[in-house]
Every structure is written in C-alpha cells, then in structure tokens.
C-alpha cells in the first residue's frame, strides 16, 4: 500500500507542480471562507420594535425611528455603505380601504415631490401567503454640477392591516437595485405588525 501511495505521489509530482497546487488550494480555501463569512453576516440581524411594528434589520444598520404621530415608523441604511434604504410606514386604513386608494395617493404625492417619478410596474401579489400590493418605481436624484444625476429605483409592498396599513419600501440606485432585492424580501418577511394583527 505504501509503495502504491509513493508511486502515486511520484506520478503526481511529475504531472503537477505541488507548489502551484498548494497556492491554488490556498486561494480556493480563502474564497470558501469568504463565502462562509458572508453567510454569517447575512444571518446577523437586529430586532427593532415600535408602534406595534417589529422588524429584523441587518446587523450594523443605522435605524432611524419616526416621531410619535408620523407615518414613518423606521427608516434604515447601512452607515458604512449607504446604498439601499429600507422604510416602514403605517398609513391610515380601515375596513373599506382598498389597495388602490393607498397606492394612488402615495404615487400622486411622490409625483409631486420627486424628479421624473415614474411607476414601472404595480400589481397585486401574494407575499408569503398574504395578499399584498407591489409597486416598482423610479425617479431621478440630482447633485448639482458635482456629478451626473442618478436614477433611483424603489419598491413598495403594501399590506392591508388594521387599524393601519403597513407599507415596506426599498430604494437603491438603479444599477445596484437588483442585487438588493433578495435581502429586502427577507427583511419584508421579517416585519410583523402586532396591533390589530394581519401581518
């Protein structure tokens, strides 16, 4: 057995430079550890609760809480890489309110405030077994003469909860938006509105 192993090693040495193989193995090991590190970071969350809303934000994110009476409950960004912004709102709602009522007034307000605001897509969806309304939109953010204007894309999820409706939003630069979606959906799934139940 030892002779076979020795022969195998000799053949391997001839075929492959062991030093090069060791370098390749080292680099691959480092990248695998990088993937493990990413998984560990993605799993870390900070639980924040206010006004009956409980949400799990990615650990390390800076969470701003709205004032009493404000529609905005939370707004959060990663302070070290402020690309994406998550916002959680509670809008007035009631038994007779439909998605369209909420969506129309919010789209209208944004159209008044933002440059080149456009709704890219909106439809009723089922999110994790619950009825929701999804709006995808874009607008232009300008920086004066310092840099090119930037296209910001956003996505809202509306949930008809009671006594107030829950709206969870993502905004990110257009070229980075798609890469943010997966994590945002995990965040949306983590949001719970206890007062009155529903989601």
């Amino acid at each position: 057995m030892a002779a076979v192993w020795q022969s195998f090693r000799d053949q391997l040495k001839k075929a492959v430079d062991l030093s090069t193989a060791a370098v390749v193995l080292t680099a691959l090991t480092a990248l695998a550890l990088g993937l493990v590190l990413r998984a560990v970071v993605d799993a870390r969350v900070t639980v924040v609760a206010r006004a009956g809303v409980r949400a799990e934000f990615p650990a390390g994110w800076l969470v701003e809480r709205g004032l009493a009476g404000e529609e905005m409950i939370f707004s959060a960004v990663n302070p070290l890489n402020p690309v994406a912004r998550y916002t959680v709102l509670l809008l007035p709602s009631g038994e007779g309110i439909h998605f369209n009522d909420l969506v129309f007034s919010r789209n209208y307000a944004r159209g008044q405030q933002l440059d080149s605001y456009v709704v890219l897509d909106q439809s009723e969806v089922i999110f994790e077994g619950k009825p929701a309304f999804r709006v995808r939109y874009a607008y232009v953010r300008t920086f004066g003469s310092a840099a090119l204007p930037e296209v910001i894309e956003g996505m809202d999820y509306y949930f008809l909860t009671l006594p107030r409706a829950l709206v969870i939003s993502l905004e990110a630069p257009g070229d980075r938006f798609e890469s943010q979606l997966s994590r945002f959906k995990t965040f949306v799934a983590s949001v719970r509105y206890a007062e009155g139940g529903g989601k």
């Binding site: 390749v24 080292t26 680099a27 480092a30 550890l33 993937l35 590190l37 970071v41 070290l80 890469s179």
Partner: peptide, 29 residues
C-alpha cells in the same frame, strides 16, 4: 459574484477579514 457592498461593511472586523479573504486572495492569486 460575492456582492461585497451588501455585507462587507457590516462591522470593522468583517470588512478586514472579508477584504483579505475575497479581495486580497483573488487579486494576489
């Protein structure tokens, strides 16, 4: 492929370790 901006800045130790493991080893290799 590692989507670094989404997770690399979660904490200073993550930034350092992730930069060594992903950026450092890839570029130097």
């Amino acid at each position: 492929l590692f989507n670094l901006p989404d997770w690399l800045y979660a904490a200073p130790w993550v930034t350092l370790l992730g930069a060594v493991l992903v950026l450092g080893f890839t570029q130097e290799f």
